[in-house]
Simulated assay, not measured.
Amino acid sequence: MDRSTGAALLQRSRTIGLGNTGTVTAGTQEHESVAVPAAPVLQAAELDRLRTAVSAALTEFLDRQRATLAAMDPSLAPVVDEVCALAEGGKRLRPAFAYWGWRGARDLAAAQDEPAVLRAVAALEFVHASALVHDDVMDGAQTRRGRPATHIGFAARHSGSDLDGDGKLFGVGAAILVGDLALVWSDELLRRSGISAAALTRARSVWDTMRTEVTAGQYLDLLRAAGGLPGPDGAMKVARYKSAGYTVQRPLHLGAAIAGAAPEVTEAYTAIGLPLGEAFQLRDDVLGVFGDPDVTGKSADDDLREGKQTLLISLAEESADASGRRLLDDLLGNAEAGAQEFDALRDLLESTGARARVEERITERTALARSAIAAAPLAEDARAALDALAVAATTRTA
């Protein structure tokens, strides 16, 4: 998110008022009616500061790793270059949620050195990079953030270098290893961040749970693509474990663990993180089909061509007539389909009301999360920041 985009999102967050949401339930937490005000202002300068600090931590770490790999063999340079390219992109939402999770709790427990905390939360970007690379391999995706997906890029490198063997297999193998390496480096950056030994011990429990959930979620996604976990409930289970949990809930828990937060703070973060992570992933699903490629960095046809079994698709299947279901059967996941045919699928998602129902759920889950933020026992600056991030994360265009 550049300065102008951040400012636009924050301006939008000031104008969205969700009103009173009534009694709401998130996880096992029930909250009484809370009037949710328009999202408070999180200054673009503060977002820039956080993004800059995370980027600096990643750059410093990757420079060391580049030297390590170069000493092993110069031909390893493309591997670290690819991790660098993956780490350069993105909105830094996961480190932001973790950082403000720490800020929200730090007045209730022993404080940590802020630069060390920033290095620790930056490690989340490597977890994210790993998940993206492996997901693209499993989905057969062609692009990521406006550039060739990792397996596509390494296949092209194989061809351009006149190497022996199957270039496609080379690309897939290299991508798997790049993703593995990013996951290994996430551990190393967390361990070397400089947070105290006690904070690191507390953080490891959350960290391990998060990485287990992400990996399990990737398998559930693979299973659903093969016909398992059918229907809307299956779609949401995949979304929760594959993406939603490690985007909001677990980063908030990580920040709380680093701070040594009281149990009620962690419980509040669960009430915030579960609905907000779901809303974030549903927005991602909508953008995957209806987003502007110039903004998202990927074709709006890719998710349809790959046959992603999102909630959008499940709801359309439920509501479509016989001809609509035949259209889904014929075109979803059809690599030979063209732009006009995918436009017909988009029209079906609109006409069945699937897109509108997903948008309603995004609004409802965002309101639920914002109610939990308003009721949470947090430092005021963190409450304001999390509220603004909640709106930005669910109204984004990329």
Rank of each mutant, 00 (worst) to 15 (best):
G90F: 07
G307N: 03
P251G: 04
D302E: 09
D285P: 00
A339D: 15
A322M: 02
E318T: 04
V358R: 03
A261F: 03
V36H: 13
G19I: 05
M138C: 10
E82V: 05
E88Q: 08
T247F: 02
G353W: 00
I152V: 15
V358F: 03
D135V: 12
T247I: 03
A379L: 00
A98V: 03
T209P: 07
S205Q: 15
D180S: 08
R14T: 14
G22I: 14
A256G: 04
A385M: 02
M210H: 10
Q340W: 08
T397I: 14
T5S: 12
D233R: 13
M138E: 12
E380C: 02
F126G: 06
G153F: 11
M210N: 07
T150M: 04
L276N: 02
A271R: 00
T25V: 15
R147L: 14
L229D: 09
G22L: 11
L183Y: 12
V133A: 10
Y99Q: 12
E359S: 06
G234A: 03
L124G: 13
G273Q: 00
P377A: 01
A131D: 09
A382R: 00
S13H: 14
D301L: 05
D180V: 09
G19N: 03
G90R: 02
A199P: 10
A335Y: 03
L118W: 07
S371C: 06
V36K: 12
G277L: 01
D136C: 12
I152N: 11
A122M: 09
D107G: 06
L118G: 07
G140H: 04
A375V: 01
L222C: 11
F97I: 06
V127E: 11
L304D: 05
D187Q: 09
S371R: 11
L163V: 07
G19L: 05
Q249Y: 09
A226Q: 15
Q112C: 02
T394N: 08
F280C: 00
L349M: 07
V265A: 00
I176H: 13
A261N: 04
A98S: 06
D329H: 10
V265S: 01
L220G: 08
D329V: 06
L304S: 07
E32F: 14
A77C: 08
R145T: 07
S243H: 04
G173F: 08
P230D: 10
P230S: 07
R14G: 15
G273S: 02
P275V: 00
A356S: 14
